[in-house]
């Protein structure tokens, strides 16, 4: 979503993005002329008249589970977004019985929060697991 019109979205998709991604952009390219939606999400920069790089993860109940907002010059890391979605989906599927510690990715250890884990995290989770 940006403040550009749907017509400009079409031109950008047809003349540039479709040259990067076969078949063009696979998802909806939303238009927010005037920044009303961006304002509601806290990412519209009134002075510049554009939206900052906001990224929101919204779950099947419409609840915001996470977001990240960057100023325009720095791009996002898609791999980290996907990792967060996988983590939130795992937690949801476990109905909150599992949690993903720092550095978690699919296949790695999850934690089962409960009285038994208090003071015992150090036994199963090591600090180098946060980084690899």
């Amino acid at each position: 979503m940006s403040v550009d019109s749907v017509f400009v979205h079409k031109m950008w998709n047809d003349h540039e993005l479709s040259k990067m991604v076969k078949g063009g952009v696979p998802f909806q390219m939303l238009s927010d002329g005037g920044g009303k939606v961006g304002t509601a999400f806290g990412v519209y920069d009134e002075d510049a008249g554009v939206e900052n790089r906001g990224r929101f993860l919204i779950d099947p109940d419409g609840i915001i589970q996470g977001f990240e907002v960057l100023t325009p010059p720095v791009g996002r890391n898609v791999a980290e977004t996907l990792r967060q979605i996988q983590a939130f989906q795992l937690v949801r599927k476990s109905k909150g019985t599992e949690a993903t510690p720092s550095g978690w990715k699919p296949g790695k250890l999850t934690l089962k929060p409960g009285p038994g884990l208090v003071g015992k995290v150090w036994e199963v989770w090591k600090t180098d697991m946060a980084r690899d």
């Binding site: 940006s2 927010d32 554009v50 939206e51 790089r53 990224r55 993860l57 977004t81 989906q89």
Partner: peptide, 14 residues
Amino acid sequence: WVVLCFYPGDFTFV
């Protein structure tokens, strides 16, 4: 699940 992304503008560089 929905990923909603905002960005500054079409035809920009980043």
